[in-house]
Structure formats: structure tokens, C-alpha cells
């Protein structure tokens, strides 16, 4: 599996995303939504700067996740429907290298989207004179990248199991219900007997908790929250890498078995 091949495949994902202008448009839509949101005066109150900043960070995360879900869900099925996979795999490109290249391409596109949003956020904070807690912001960015990795792997796996529409639907549903589901598992664990508790624990281990990668409330309230400890960051990163690896391996296994 040569790095040059992986780089070439990742570059292909990039070129396609740039040619379709998807990332720029999603970033623009996100910015418009943030702008529209900051103009709203909730209950006629002024000075809701922290609330607006937290919502802006959440919207950025949401738009990045949406970009990643759509990009990741279409990578593998589109290669089959367009038949562009045949000339690629006819060369000495292993299927594992192909999936890895695509994965790196989508993750880097997600990172680009995230960085674009962060630049806009930083500029807005500097212009408005809002405090920026740089360490927490960098930690938030890293954890968001971890979320992008997990979502990309999940969508790759889903796109091998079902078509583009179903994969996007499930990816979006999973992203938006992940936090609710995490909270719900906690409730189940507290309220149920031994069997229910075991089931809740098992689900807690099996399903990735995307809410762990969202530090936006801490970034905004950085004057009260210290940055996360290095040990915690390492644990969270390993948690994300583990899930990304599991789902990516599942996608690769499905891809390897598929008849061309």
C-alpha cells in the first residue's frame, strides 16, 4: 500500500469536492445561519453574546458533520455506479489502500471545512472583542476532528450496506440523535434492574457518543472551565480512533467482499 497511491485517491476526493463547490456553499450557508441567529433577540434581551457564540460553535459542528456525511456516503457507491472503480482497481491498487485513500480525503475535506469555520469564528470574536480561550478552542477543534473521523467511518460502512439516500438519512439521524441517546442510556441505567443495566452498559460501549467531542459550552465559558487534562484528551482521542478503526475495517470488509 504505497503512500503515493493513497495520496492520489485522497486528492481525487478533494478535487471532486472543490469542483462541486460543496464545502464553500455549506460554509456559506452555515455563516448565513449564524448571522441570522445572532440577529434574533430572545425574549427582547440584549447581551446574549455567550449564548450566541455557543450556538455558532454548535452550528459549525453541525454543518461540518453534514458535509462529512454527504461526502462520505457517496464516495464508494458512486465509484461503482459510474464504473470509475474498474480502471482504478485494474492498476496495482489494493482495496484497503483505496478505502483508506478515500477516508483520508473525506477527513481532510472535513478538516478544511472545520478550519474555515474556525477562522470565521476567530475573526468574529476579535472584531466583537469577545475573549478567546485558545487552548480550549484548539482542544475543541481536535475533538471535532475526532468526530469527523468517526462519522466518516460510520458513513463509509453504511454506504456499503445501503444506497446513498439511506446512508445519508441514517448518518444525519445518528448525528442528531446521538446526544439524546447518550442521555437516555443514562436514564435507563439509573431506572432499571440488573438486566436493563447490563443492556444499557452494553449499548454504552457499542455505540459511539458524539457528544463527548463537543466542547463548545466549555470554550464559551472558558473563564470558569480550565482546559481538559492531557490524559483526558488522549483517552478521548483513543476512543475516537478505536471507533473509526472498527467502522472503517467493517467498511473495508464489505468492500472487499463485493463482486466487481
Amino acid at each position: 500500500m504505497s503512500p503515493k497511491v493513497i495520496h492520489c485517491i485522497a486528492k481525487g476526493v478533494w478535487l471532486e469536492a472543490i469542483r462541486r463547490k460543496e464545502i464553500y456553499v455549506i460554509v456559506s450557508i452555515g455563516c448565513l445561519m449564524i448571522l441570522a441567529f445572532t440577529r434574533i433577540r430572545f425574549f427582547g434581551l440584549d447581551g446574549l453574546s455567550k449564548f450566541h457564540r455557543e450556538t455558532a460553535l454548535n452550528l459549525m459542528s453541525m454543518c461540518t458533520a453534514l458535509t462529512v456525511v454527504i461526502l462520505a456516503s457517496r464516495q464508494l457507491p458512486l465509484e461503482f455506479t459510474r464504473r470509475t472503480i474498474y480502471p482504478l482497481l485494474a492498476r496495482p491498487v489494493p482495496r484497503g489502500g483505496f478505502v483508506l485513500g478515500k477516508w483520508i480525503g473525506v477527513v481532510s475535506a472535513g478538516l478544511f471545512c472545520l478550519l474555515l469555520f474556525l477562522c470565521i469564528y476567530l475573526i468574529a470574536c476579535l472584531v466583537l472583542g469577545a475573549p478567546v480561550h485558545l487552548t480550549l478552542l484548539l482542544q475543541h477543534t481536535w475533538l471535532q476532528l475526532c468526530m469527523v473521523m468517526v462519522m466518516t467511518s460510520i458513513c463509509f460502512w453504511l454506504s456499503m450496506l445501503c444506497d446513498f439516500d439511506a446512508s445519508v438519512t441514517f448518518g444525519i439521524l445518528f448525528y442528531f440523535t446521538s446526544t439524546v441517546f447518550s442521555n437516555f442510556l443514562q436514564e435507563v441505567h439509573e431506572a432499571s434492574g440488573p438486566v436493563g443495566q447490563t443492556a444499557a452498559r452494553l449499548l454504552n460501549i457499542v455505540i459511539p457518543h458524539l457528544s463527548l467531542f463537543n466542547l463548545s459550552p466549555k470554550v464559551v465559558h472558558g473563564d470558569f472551565w480550565p482546559p481538559l487534562e492531557v490524559g483526558v484528551m488522549i483517552q478521548l482521542s483513543l476512543y475516537a480512533f478505536g471507533f473509526a478503526l472498527i467502522f472503517l475495517s467493517a467498511a473495508w470488509l464489505q468492500f472487499r467482499r463485493r463482486a466487481l
Binding site: R20, I26, A36, L66, I70
Partner: peptide
């Protein structure tokens, strides 16, 4: 394009009324 259409569609479908009301 597809990704834009899905994103804009989701925003319009699920937040249009919220934005207008708020």
C-alpha cells in the same frame, strides 16, 4: 449540486419557521 441541495433542503425544511418566528 447534490450536497448543496440536501443541505439547503434540510435547513429550509427544519428551520424556516423557527427563523421567521424567532
Amino acid at each position: 449540486p447534490q450536497a448543496m441541495a440536501v443541505s439547503v433542503g434540510l435547513v429550509l425544511t427544519f428551520t424556516g419557521g423557527l427563523i421567521a418566528t424567532a
